[in-house]
């Protein structure tokens, strides 16, 4: 019995120690589970609703109309000469993906406490699956946005200039997903012990939206406050998105690089915290 040598063991369970134990290999091994979660999310969201996936369309359209009326017609905020409908929709669609990613992943530990408490699998699979399933929602909304865009373009709206920077969209998506995931898992790691942070997320995301050029163009901002908005890593992303599809605003590679670095740092911190919490959260959640 004692002949078994150390190296034959396939797994060793130890107390949490050190920060740098990534389970990325494990995550890869559980990729089937990742896909099952994505499928579950997608299939289950609109079950037993009559409109079904049509809600994916309805949400941004209704929000866009509201914004157009409130900010465009009543508050008369400039849209850089772009048809207000397109202007707001571009903002809503791209911001929506980021904020969904953040809010969904921020409650990872709490919503999954039941299942996490019973079976082991790399916990990172859960937030990752959220990011991916939200991607589908984004895809559908982007399609809707493109339809509107084409309509305006065909009808000779002179202010709309889609350009080659559209090819940057996948990169922008990665940035948004990374930022959303990064912030989300940082918050979810913190909420296991102190629930205070989950309250913060709710209105935090909303406040952050106003610090991002979603309902106003960067150009409409007084110089004095511009730095606040530019410090926000989401600014460059939304701005580039709008520039690519509508041709309005600016494209500033420097700002985009800033966002990328910000994303990498946030995500790394997030994964570090998440990995650490994943081992102990059952005792504190």
């Amino acid at each position: 019995m004692s002949k078994t040598s150390q190296d034959e063991w396939t797994l060793e369970i130890k107390p949490v120690s050190g920060w740098f134990h990534f389970h990325l290999k494990d995550v890869w091994r559980y990729r089937d589970l990742l896909m099952m979660f994505v499928r579950r999310d997608f299939v289950a969201v609109y079950k037993q609703t009559i409109l079904g996936p049509f809600w994916f369309f309805l949400q941004p359209i209704l929000t866009t109309i509201t914004f157009t009326v409130v900010f465009g017609n009543i508050a008369r905020i400039s849209t850089d000469g772009i048809p207000p409908l397109l202007f707001y929709m571009s903002g809503i669609v791209s911001w929506g993906y980021f904020s969904d990613c953040l809010t969904r992943t921020s409650s990872t530990f709490i919503t999954n406490a039941n299942i996490f408490g019973k079976v082991y699998f790399p916990r990172l699979v859960s937030p990752l699956s959220n990011i991916i399933s939200l991607l589908m929602k984004f895809g559908i909304q982007l399609f809707l946005f493109t339809c509107f865009l084409l309509y305006y373009w065909m009808n000779g709206s002179t202010n709309v200039h889609p350009n080659i920077y559209i090819l940057l969209t996948p990169y922008l998506l990665i940035l948004m997903a990374g930022l959303g995931l990064g912030f989300g898992i940082i918050v979810s790691s913190l909420t296991t012990k102190y629930r205070d942070f989950s309250f913060l997320v709710g209105f935090g995301v909303q406040l952050l939206m106003y610090a991002t050029p979603v309902i106003y163009p960067l150009s409409a901002l007084p110089e004095k406050y511009k730095w606040i908005v530019l410090a926000n890593p989401m600014t460059a992303i939304i701005d580039t998105f709008r520039y690519a599809f509508l041709g309005a605003g600016t494209f500033n590679p420097g700002n985009l690089i800033y966002s990328s670095v910000f994303m990498i740092v946030t995500l790394s911190i997030g994964i570090l915290m998440f990995n650490r919490v994943e081992k102990t959260f059952m005792d504190t959640v």
Binding site: T4, E8, W9, T10, L11, E12, I13, K14, P15, V16, F116, G117, K118, V119, Y120, K279, T280, M282, D283
Partner: peptide
């Protein structure tokens, strides 16, 4: 043993 919660001290080896 099923890796749902970690130990405070000590270790478990599994095959």
């Amino acid at each position: 043993l099923s890796r749902v919660a970690g130990p405070t001290t000590g270790s478990v080896k599994l095959k």
